[in-house]
Design a protein around this nucleic acid. Structure first.
Lengths: 346, 346
DNA sequence: TTGAAAGCGCTAACAA
DNA sequence: TTGTTAGCGCTTTCAA
């Protein structure tokens, strides 16, 4: 085999100083003579030294790593993790979460460990991973309301930040969006455009974000003179949007405005409408939610309620970092405001 | 603070044996009396012991972690890593890579560290990460042909497996698809359908996969009586597909069959065609490449050439694992075969 | 089959 | 400001 990787010892010998001194310059601790600093720096370059992380972690008790967990709520192995992962990334939402997290981590030379937790075994795996000190904390994005992971993490006192407020409450920090206000913005947009027969395709109603978006939408519609709004429940996928719209149309063929609880479903709604020969937005106005990539690539481009996922994810990482360093001990929450983005479907 | 996490020592004391014995049962080494094994097992449960990974890694010299690197070819910080990450995940391709990798890693209780390398700094970061022993090897997916990362990795003798054959050659294992054959399948499908005026929207021609797909397509078209096939270069994005098709139509308004080098561009082609009032497949047949999620959600569903990305990614992980364990020392390559998936655009 | 003991490479008191 | 030294928690010879 090739020779061993150089250690602190090697650098120290090369520079003619002690290991402690080399450690100090490596870690940028002050109180080191500039001349010696220079000397050590050169020795590091000559030897091609790279500090062994395991050794450092062993003493600092920090992995300088965080886990990014996408968590479902399955209890058995009904679905392989591979299938779950594939399904998850089909929604542009998760790519945005990754982008936001990476945006925060990158300047700190940190990189996330990606984990998918869909079964009880997976959840146990996440717990173990953290308890072994392989990661200092977890960022979790749940796809279901009754995800047991947050509770487990909180009970184990592991630093954690959630995307979205947990239901039931768990003493963990989280980042969220004012979904109700998002629903309100969507309703206002449809009302302003003069819609007379609005309808909505909701997200899974077990998810509180779906509930909130719906509540905000309904309340505002009620004030606008539409006490009853037909509704069909979707599953945040394109197909479910198509299906939900099919149902809606069956009972209310004269719908002239639809609020879909995410862009993917809104895209499905547009597809179906078009297949049925109805024009968007001339016959039916459509408004989505998220402002993900599909909103722009949809034909026509989608009017939608923007959720600043990247910023939210970066904020999650920032909060987790504070928890890990002990700069923050109590759970906190940060709620972002949605924003209407008008394109061509309204 | 809460009390320290239990160590081997604690378990040993609790079980009335030595640390060495506990270590043996934890690592499933044979030669341990079943009775004692049982005894230790219980002590582990009672104490809630979880082995400290840093300590273990320090002696085994294994992080039991691999890096999944998405690598561009930028040289400066023209684009933030966040923007790069967002762009990358806009293509369903990467989600499938993640899914495939996770599918292999999961049964081994391993999880990938996600890294994006778009600038020289990023690449240095990847090298350092591996040299520090934070990950045992890297899986790299390059988005550009002239990505310098593989060469750097090879020079540093770091275990690495690439997605796609590197150009110029680098002594590293890789997994690839027979792109030329994929182009052939696409041509055959169009020919069989009776297309008389075929055209193609290629991927970035700097990428060898694009070149190969094009070559296979052209050769087969030539044999089928179409020595010249109009072409427009795209960038693997939906927008570029729309743009390329616009160009094609401008010069060849009578096109009746289009092969787009990936599904995203094929979707763009379909959108434009529809906007121009041309029916798919009645007026123009369209065929994509990849068989990613968009192929199914596209209206009409896309006929496409399937690239088994998940299986390919899993194979990458398997090869890397072998390299890391020293079970394989020389670079190897595994080439998968494409497959035609007929849906409704031909 | 089990235990004693020597490190793995690093940081952080504590001394000098 | 620098060096000495004692571990961090684990695996792994080597003896018993």
């Amino acid at each position: 085999m090739s020779r061993q990787a150089p250690t602190l010892e090697d650098v120290a010998r090369e520079a003619g100083v002690s290991r402690a001194t080399v450690s100090r310059v490596v870690n940028g601790v002050r109180n080191v003579d500039p001349a010696i600093q220079e000397q050590v720096q050169r020795a590091i370059e000559r030897t091609g030294y790279a500090p062994n992380r395991a050794a450092r972690s062993l003493v600092t008790r920090r992995a300088e790593t965080i886990a990014l967990v996408v968590s479902g709520a399955g209890s058995g192995p009904q679905e392989t993790q591979e299938a779950f992962a594939a399904r998850v990334f089909a929604d542009p939402f998760f790519g945005r979460v990754v982008a936001g997290v990476v945006g925060f981590l990158r300047p700190r030379s940190m990189h996330p460990v990606l984990m998918f937790a869909e079964s009880a075994d997976d959840r146990h795996e996440v717990l173990t991973y953290l308890r072994q000190g392989r990661a200092d904390g977890a960022l979790v994005v749940s796809t279901h309301a009754d995800d047991p992971l947050p509770t487990l993490l909180a009970a184990a006192k592991l630093p954690t930040v959630l995307f979205a407020r947990p239901t039931p409450p768990v003493p963990l920090s989280y980042v969220d969006l004012d979904h109700r206000d998002g629903g309100r913005l969507a309703a206002l947009a449809l009302l302003e455009r003069g819609c007379r027969r609005p309808a909505t395709v909701t997200g899974p109603l077990a998810v509180s974000a779906s509930q909130e978006r719906l509540a905000g939408f309904r309340d505002t519609m009620a004030r606008g003179g539409h006490p009853y709004v037909p509704l069909a429940e979707g599953g945040f996928t394109l197909d479910s949007g198509v299906f939900a719209m099919t149902q809606l149309l069956a009972e209310h063929p004269d719908v002239d405005g639809v609020f879909a609880a995410n862009d993917l479903m809104a895209q499905g709604v547009c597809q179906l409408l078009r297949e049925r020969g109805m024009r968007v937005p001339d016959d039916v106005a459509v408004i989505g939610f998220d402002d993900s990539g599909v909103a722009r690539s949809c034909r026509p481009p989608l009017t939608t309620v923007r959720q600043p996922v990247e910023r939210m994810a970066a904020e999650m990482a920032r909060l987790l970092d504070q928890h890990i360093r002990g700069e923050r001990t109590n759970p906190t929450s940060v709620v972002f405001d949605p924003e209407l983005v008008v394109r061509e479907t309204t």
